[in-house]
């Protein structure tokens, strides 16, 4: 059973797309991530043009993050001031990213850039997560308490100027690292189609020392708005959002996520992180192999205009 994707201009097997959506939804529910960093490479492996995979991935993250964002907003487990600062810098980053995206696309370097960015990002984050979770697992095996958040300890981040008090998080922090993180993630949303929760959450915990209670809510708040904005801009300027593809992925993803959440609740946090790290590394490795392997044809046709 095939369905034609009008923007990607290709016919795809609807069952494969639904399966991808469900699998990514399951994993995103299980690990509490948006899933953009998984769906974009999967779509690329399925020969969806990377530009479309990225923009459609951002659209998918909107759907997978909104329900979590709403529930955190209701419960008040987010720092609105910190979230807004991250959001504004994120929107700026996303706008800059779209510009980079368009330039790279016209130079014919976009596909390569997306793959390279994924290999670097997934490789780094995956390795860090794996090392960290293995350490945690070893500590648990030795029956030692694990604390992610070590308040009171200060690093160079806390010596930066332009300090502002974030009441909800009970931190007194320079706006510079917050703006930098928000901006960087905005760029990544545009060029990689990820929400960036799996980067933002550790960055906020280890870097900014934000209390874990408000980290997820704040990050989801930022992600929903930045991905929604990115989807809009990608659709308007680059015409790369494929709504037929997105719709299938979103429906399957939302359902898959419900089951993922249930499985995730039964596993321990350290085990989950180790598994996620392995998954991230595997995806990164696969993309790296594709970059190095000799392509079937070294020529590729880019259709010029659209009728």
């Amino acid at each position: 059973m095939t369905i034609y994707l009008p923007i990607a201009e290709m016919s795809v097997n609807i069952l494969i797309i639904l399966g991808m959506g469900a699998a990514v939804g399951f994993l995103s529910g299980m690990f509490g991530v948006g899933g953009g960093f998984l769906i974009t490479p999967l779509l690329i492996f399925y020969n969806v043009p990377p530009a479309i995979a990225v923009a459609t991935g951002a659209c998918l993250v909107v759907a997978s993050s909104v329900s979590g964002a709403i529930s955190h907003f209701r419960r008040g487990t987010l720092d609105l001031k910190l979230g807004t600062l991250l959001l504004v810098s994120g929107l700026a980053g996303s706008t800059a990213g779209i510009g980079v995206f368009a330039i790279l696309r016209s130079l014919g370097l976009l596909d390569l850039f997306i793959s390279l960015a994924y290999v670097l990002l997934l490789g780094t984050v995956g390795s860090l997560m794996l090392i960290e979770s293995l350490r945690a697992l070893r500590r648990i095996a030795k029956n030692r308490a694990v604390s992610l958040n070590r308040p009171g300890q200060h690093n160079w981040v806390h010596r930066l100027p332009f300090k502002v008090r974030f009441k909800k998080s009970k931190i007194y922090l320079s706006v510079l690292p917050v703006i930098a993180i928000g901006f960087l993630l905005g760029v990544l949303t545009s060029v990689m189609g990820i929400g960036g929760g799996f980067i933002m959450v550790p960055a906020m915990i280890y870097f900014l020392r934000v209390p874990t209670g408000v980290v997820i809510g704040t990050s989801l708040f930022q992600i929903v708005f930045v991905t929604a904005y990115t989807t809009m801009i990608q659709a308007t300027l680059n015409h790369t959002v494929d709504i037929v593809l997105a719709l299938q992925l979103m429906i399957a993803g939302v359902i898959g996520a419900q089951y993922g959440v249930r499985v995730g609740q039964r596993l321990r946090a350290e085990q989950l992180r180790a598994l996620l790290a392995l998954l991230v590394l595997a995806v990164g490795l696969r993309l790296a192999i594709d970059l190095v392997l000799t392509p079937k044809d070294i020529y590729s046709i880019v259709t010029g205009g659209h009728t």
């Binding site: 659209c59 759907a63 979590g68 429906i251 996520a257």
Partner: peptide, 25 residues
Amino acid sequence: AAYGNSFLYGLSAVIIALSIGWAGS
């Protein structure tokens, strides 16, 4: 719609995404 009314197309994509995510929850 994607090429002619791209802004509205993008807006609908976002609204659909928000509603599906919300409906799921």
